[in-house]
Design a protein around this nucleic acid. Sequence first.
DNA 1: CAGTGTGAAGAGGTTCACAGCG
DNA 2: CGCTGTGAACCTCTTCACACTG
Lengths: 212, 212
Amino acid sequence: MPHKSASVKTIPDIVVGRLPFYLRTLRALAAEGREITSSSDLGNRLGLTSAQIRKDLSYFGEFGKQGLGYNIPFLVDQLRRILKVDRVWEVVLVGFGDLGRAIAHYHGFHDRGFEIRMVFDSDPAKIGQSLAGFTVDDMNAMVEKVRAAKVRVAMLAVPATSAQKVADLLIKGGVRAILNYAPTTLNVPKGVAVQNIDPAAHMQHMTYYLEP
Amino acid sequence: MPHKSASVKTIPDIVVGRLPFYLRTLRALAAEGREITSSSDLGNRLGLTSAQIRKDLSYFGEFGKQGLGYNIPFLVDQLRRILKVDRVWEVVLVGFGDLGRAIAHYHGFHDRGFEIRMVFDSDPAKIGQSLAGFTVDDMNAMVEKVRAAKVRVAMLAVPATSAQKVADLLIKGGVRAILNYAPTTLNVPKGVAVQNIDPAAHMQHMTYYLEP
DNA sequence: CAGTGTGAAGAGGTTCACAGCG
DNA sequence: CGCTGTGAACCTCTTCACACTG
C-alpha cells in the first residue's frame, strides 16, 4: 500500500459514511422531478445542519453554485463516482438460512450498485437449491470460485459461531469489503472494510431512552 | 419532561450505542463458560481500546474489581438493566412485504429483549394472512390497537414513500422507538427515538475504500 | 502486581460566521 | 441578495497516564 501523499488530505470515515444518505436523499429529490437543492434543504431532510452538508461536500470538490445551490443530477453523479457506485459490484452471499434467503430476495441493492452473483452454504441440504435465481454452492469451493471471479464484496449471513472462520476464507479469496449480519465482531487485517448490521443492537440502543 | 438534574451527568449517546455490543460480547463469553474478563480482553474482542471500555462503563457505576477485572454474569446483568432489556418489549411490525416477512421470521430478537406481537399492512391481499404465527392486521386499525396494547416499540418495513406517514401514525398511537428499515430519513418529535437500517448505505460506505 | 477508575491532555468532529461569487 | 466554501472557534469524544486497590 502506497504511503499517503502529502497533497491528498485524508477524509474522515464519518464523512464518507454520510455520503450514501446524501445520495439516497438526492435521488429521492430527483425522482420528485426537482433539479436544484440547497444545503439547508438537504439538511432539513436529513436532520443535519446546512454547515455540515457544505463542509462534507467540500472535502471532495466545489459542487455548488454560490447564490444558487446544488444541481441535483450533477451532485448525484458526483456522489456515485466518489462512492464508486457508478458501476455494479458483484457480491458473494454466504449463508442461505432464513437471513441469507431474505437478503437474496431483497430488491433494494440492485439500483444502488450491487448484484448478488454467488451464494455459498456449508449445509448439504441447501447446496444445489436455486431459489430466487441463485444456485447455492458448496462452501468448500468458495475460496477458489471467489478468487476466480475476482469478487471483492461479500455479505455474511452465517451463525455468529462460524462468522470469523468464513470471513477469513473470504479474505483469502480476495474479498475486501464485508457486510456482516452475524452478531459478532470480526477481526480483519488492514485493507479490509467491515460494516455490521445488528438490528437487535439498534433496538437496545433505543430502549435505553424509554421509560420503564 | 423534567429539566436535567444537576447531579446526573448526561451520558453521551455514542456511549449508549456501544453498550449493546458490550452486552453481546459478554454473553458470548458467558456462553463459553467464562466467569471473568478484563477491559483489555473485551477491547480486543470488540476492536476498541481498553481505556474506552473502562471509561464507558464508568459512566454507569464501578462494575470491576481492581487487579482482577469484571465478573461476566454480573456485568451482563448490569448492562441488561441499564439498557432496560431485563424484560421483554412488545413490538409492532408494520409492513408485511418481503422485508417485513423476513423480520417476522428472524429469530435474533427474542433473547435480546424483543417480541413481535402485532403486524400491520395496508394491502387487503395481506391482511388476514398468518404466516409465522402472526395474523396481519389492517393498518386502519393500527393507531387504536397500538394505543390499547400500550406498545412503545415499532419496526418499520414499508416503502420509503409511505414511511413518514406510517411513522406519524405509530407515534400517534404511543410508539416512542422506531427501527426504520425504509431507506428514507424520518422526521420525529423530541422524545421519539429512531434507528435506521440501510444495508445498501453500508455497502456504499465500503466501496469508497475499494480500488476501482 | 494486575487491572480498574478517572482527571487531564489530545484528537477529532461540528458549528460559526463571513468573505466571495453568481 | 442568496447561498456556497472555509478558516477559526468551539465542543465532544478518545486516549493517556497514574493513583489506587484487591
